[in-house]
Structures are given as C-alpha cells and as structure tokens.
Amino acid sequence: MDWLQVVVLALVQGVSEFLPVSSSAHLILVPVLTEWQDQGLAFDVALHLGSLLAVVVYFRAELWQMMTSCVSALKGQRVDRDARLAGWVIIATLPVCTVGFLMRDVVSEYMRSPLIIGVSLIVFGLWLGYADWQKRGVRSEYQLTLTDTLWIGGAQALALIPGTSRSGVTMTAALMLGMSREGAARFSFLLSIPVIVLAGGLEAIELIGQPNPVDGPAMLVGTLLSGLSAYACIHFFLALIKRLGMQPFVLYRVLFGAWLLWFFHG
C-alpha cells in the first residue's frame, strides 16, 4: 500500500466506526471506487485496534467503574448500576455473536454488493430519522432493563448487513425504547468494545500462519490515525447530537445510498 491509501483507509475507519453511517460500507466501497488493491487482513486488524483503543480510552473511567463493580458483585456485595450496565453490555453482545458465527460466510460472499449497501443505508437511515424525530426519551444507559437490552442486542445483529451501521441500528433501537440521544449513543459505544474485540480477534486468528509479509510502519500509522480520528469523532458526535440530533446523518445516509444506487445500477 502507498501512504495515501494508508491515510485514507485509517481516517475512513476512525471517523465512520462510531458514526451512524456504516463503517463497513465505506471500507468496502473505498477500493471499489479507487481501484486500490485490497488492504489485507493485517491492516484491517490494525485499523480495528485503533478504534478499540479510542473507545476504551474515552470511556476509561466508566469501564474502570464497571469492572470494579463487577468484582465487588462477584464477592457478594450489592449489584450496583455499573455492574448491571456491564451485564447489559455482555447480554446485548450475544445475539450479534451468534448470528455472526452462523451467517459469516453468507454475509461475506453474498451481501457486500453496492445494491445491498445502498438500500441498507437508505432504509436504516430513515428508521433512525423516524426514531429520532418521534421519540424524545430521557433515560440514560444506567436505566436500561433486561427487555431493553435484548431488543437493542437483537437490533445489533442486523448490523451484519453491510450498510446498516452497528452504531446506527443500536442507537435507533435505543431511541425507540425511550432513551435519550446521549444515552443511546453512549450505550452503543460501550457495545462496540466487545464487538470489535471479537471481530478483531477472529481476524487475528485467521492472520496467524499466513505467509504474507506485514508492513509494520503502515500498520502503526494506520492504528494511530484510526485511533485519533475515532476518539475525536466520539467527542464531537456526543456534542453534536445534543444540538442537532441524528438528522444530519440521516440526510447523509439517504443521499449516499441514492448515489450508490444511481452510480452502480442507474
């Protein structure tokens, strides 16, 4: 890979991973639109590592409190709101793990076309817009119930369809259940941690034993750029939705999806 490709892919991954616009759609389409060669599995792992580091660092205080509360609960102490939130994150991750394991080959072989991506961007974008427009909830991530968690976890499994957006569909479900914009976004970001760990872990396992050489400098730069851009994205997104809501992202999804359908099937 040349350095332009490294920078573009890292920024695309970092910016789109946590926005409700589908990072997978953008990463699939970059080589299609640029005719670049596939970046390879090792570089994908590096990009996901950058995104993971960003969300862990951003929510470090919350994650530490969740971890210490879980340890206290295991010792027989009271289950507080942080331990309960950690449990909700785990439970909401189970559906996407199960469906992803069963449908991984189907998704990778048959569902990565620009047509599917374009339709998914539009349909799930409009659903996000409806949820944000109709619902004005006030509940935070600490006020979730088991039923809420199962609904959000089930919605997250839909993100295996390219163009859906994992963050977008989980925020949509959370908004429909009466959560605030900030609460929906923060829970979605916390949910990204086990998903990225599991997805990156599977890619890393596949990488073991492959004879292809690894471009160390490119992977390092990709990890750093992906992480820095993802951290900035989380910060500014949480500030933006307080004032403007989800509608700018809905408009972007609809326009982008319509362009894809016109460009590839017009």
Rank of each mutant, 00 (worst) to 15 (best):
S24M: 10
A73L: 14
R136M: 03
E109I: 04
V221R: 04
L158E: 00
T145S: 15
F236Q: 03
Q5T: 11
T164Y: 07
V6Y: 04
P194I: 01
W151K: 09
V169K: 01
G125Y: 04
V79N: 08
I90C: 10
S113P: 09
A73N: 06
V195T: 13
L53M: 15
W64P: 08
A83C: 09
S120Q: 02
H48S: 09
L260H: 06
P211D: 14
I193T: 02
Q39M: 10
A46F: 09
L228H: 02
G183D: 06
L146E: 00
K75E: 12
W88N: 03
F249P: 02
D38R: 13
L52N: 05
G227S: 10
R84D: 12
L255D: 03
G76R: 14
L150H: 07
S113N: 12
A185N: 06
L4S: 13
I28A: 09
A86F: 15
R81M: 12
M171S: 03
G245I: 01
S24Y: 03
L121E: 01
K242R: 15
L190M: 11
F187P: 02
E17N: 11
W64D: 11
G257K: 12
C233V: 14
I205E: 05
C70S: 15
L228M: 13
R84V: 08
